[in-house]
Simulated assay, not measured.
Amino acid sequence: MHPSPVHPVPDDEHAQIAARTFRMLADPTRVKILWALFQEERSVNSLADSVGATAAAVSQHLAKLRLAGLVESRKEGTYAFYRASDAHVHRLLAETLSHAEHVTGAAQGDDPHGY
């Protein structure tokens, strides 16, 4: 069972933080980047290969994700390695991707209820 928020209606600050998090997850490339980073620490080039984007595009997404506090980095010589840093977002993303698989399964006729 997942914990519920303390208040039945979020206050403005918490609603803003939640909306900001959803904005960060509203881009398919950022979803792919975050999911890859929840699996293991990666470099920009490794991420670019995995998500099918240019290194420059991945770097721009990583900068936004870092500013949002969803990704951390460490330097090793001239290389930077990134990792996802928020367990709450990991659970949110896992649930959302599970939902996406459910929806696509229903579209292909796997779900008798049509969900």
Rank of each mutant, 00 (worst) to 15 (best):
L93H: 07
G109N: 04
E13Y: 10
D111F: 07
K32L: 12
V89C: 05
V51F: 00
V51K: 00
D27S: 06
I33N: 00
P3Y: 04
H2W: 11
P112V: 05
H2Y: 07
F81K: 05
L97G: 04
R30M: 02
L25W: 04
D86A: 10
E41W: 09
V51S: 03
H61C: 09
L62F: 00
F81P: 03
K64C: 08
A107V: 07
L92W: 01
P10R: 04
A48M: 12
E76W: 09
G52I: 02
P28H: 11
H88K: 14
H113C: 06
V58I: 08
D86F: 06
Q16W: 13
V9A: 07
G114E: 03
S59K: 13
I33M: 04
G77S: 14
Q39H: 14
F81S: 04
I33G: 01
H2K: 12
S98K: 15
R66K: 06
V89H: 06
G52R: 06
E101M: 15
D27E: 05
H2C: 07
V58K: 01
T29L: 05
A36E: 10
V58L: 02
V44K: 03
R83G: 08
R30I: 00
H99D: 13
H90K: 10
E76C: 09
I17V: 14
F38D: 09
A84I: 00
L25Y: 05
V103L: 06
M1Y: 06
S73H: 04
P5G: 11
P112K: 06
F81Y: 09
H14P: 01
A26L: 04
A36N: 09
F81D: 01
H14V: 08
A56M: 12
G114Q: 03
L93M: 07
A80D: 15
A19D: 15
Y82S: 01
L65C: 00
P5T: 09
T96E: 05
S59Y: 09
L25H: 05
S46L: 08
S50T: 14
T96S: 07
A87F: 09
E13W: 08
S59M: 10
A87D: 14
F38K: 08
S4K: 14
E41L: 07
G69W: 00
S43F: 00
P112Y: 08
L25N: 04
H113K: 11
P112S: 07
Y82A: 01
G109A: 00
A18H: 05
S50D: 13
R42T: 11
L65V: 02
R42L: 12
Y115A: 14
H90A: 05
A36T: 08
D11I: 02
H102F: 15
S98W: 13
P8W: 06
A80T: 15
W35F: 08
D110L: 14
A68R: 01
L47S: 02
K32S: 12
A57F: 12
H14C: 06
P5H: 10
R83W: 05
G105H: 05
R30L: 03
Y115V: 14
A106Y: 09
A48G: 13
A63L: 10
M24N: 12
H102K: 15
L65N: 01
D49P: 11
Q16P: 08
T104K: 12
K32I: 05
A15N: 02
H61V: 02
T21D: 12
